[in-house]
Design a protein around this nucleic acid. Structure first.
Lengths: 123, 123
DNA sequence: CGTTCTCATTGACAAACGTCAATGTAAAGG
DNA sequence: CCTTTACATTGACGTTTGTCAATGAGAACG
């Protein structure tokens, strides 16, 4: 297992756009008249943040520039399919993005997205 | 139905502390080593925000100083028990507080709490 | 090639969740 | 008192969620 360590550089770093689920984030919470679709979009994002494993996953990824999927399995104590499941949910919420390089999937947070979400709450 | 309207002032405004669930909010998400309990506490809060009905409810309450439970049933199109259920969850997450005055339950947001949550995400 | 490795997908299952009808509770107002 | 009113609690239900074993899909490497 390794996290963001230098390694023999892989061939073509093929950039993969992971599930940009086009969530039209985010009008502030306070600011009247919240449509049902707005509510659902926001709920999806908060839903992604509503699981302990995913929060710690996000925290782990945020603590490094980039983290390999393989580096999450152990600290989170979840099976590989479960890790894959959670990364997908975070990615669909736009909170992380992934790029496949060689055999590994590298994840990083999307700071602007986090700020967007923060702005929902901070008036 | 009425929202925050002047009304014949009720007798003893009995202040009721609604379910202070002592959620030890909130160390920033980025900032390494997130314990399981921290994660669970945060997850509880985000979980409260992860339902469209609750988000619209919170938005409604935030749009006025104070909102009566009875004023939520109609705009949210949910039954009275369901409204009660949701207010409880928001209150347990510390996002709103309620006070029973006369026959009515009045809810208001806890802005500091919202800011706390925002601060988790905004580095 | 064929093997190995990493991640995704599928299917299954128990637990948690959102919802409402029915019922309980307690204050208000005659 | 007794009735009304507003909210809480309970019980039941279908749906969603978190989890893993099993399997699939592709890249890497010899």
């Amino acid at each position: 297992m390794f996290v963001n360590s230098k390694m023999k550089q892989m061939s073509h770093p093929k950039s993969i756009a992971v599930d940009e689920n086009v969530v039209s984030c985010c009008s502030p919470l306070i600011g009247g008249e919240m449509s049902e679709v707005e509510a659902s979009d926001m709920a999806q994002i908060f839903g992604a943040l509503s699981d302990p494993a995913r929060l710690r996953m996000l925290s782990l990824i945020a603590s490094q520039e980039e983290v390999c999927s393989c580096a999450l399995e152990e600290p989170l104590a979840r099976s590989q399919p479960t890790i894959s499941h959670h990364t997908r949910i975070l990615a669909e919420a736009g909170l992380i993005t992934g790029e496949k390089r060689g055999r590994w999937m590298w994840w990083r947070v999307v700071p602007e997205r986090l700020k967007d979400v923060a702005r929902i709450l901070g008036e």
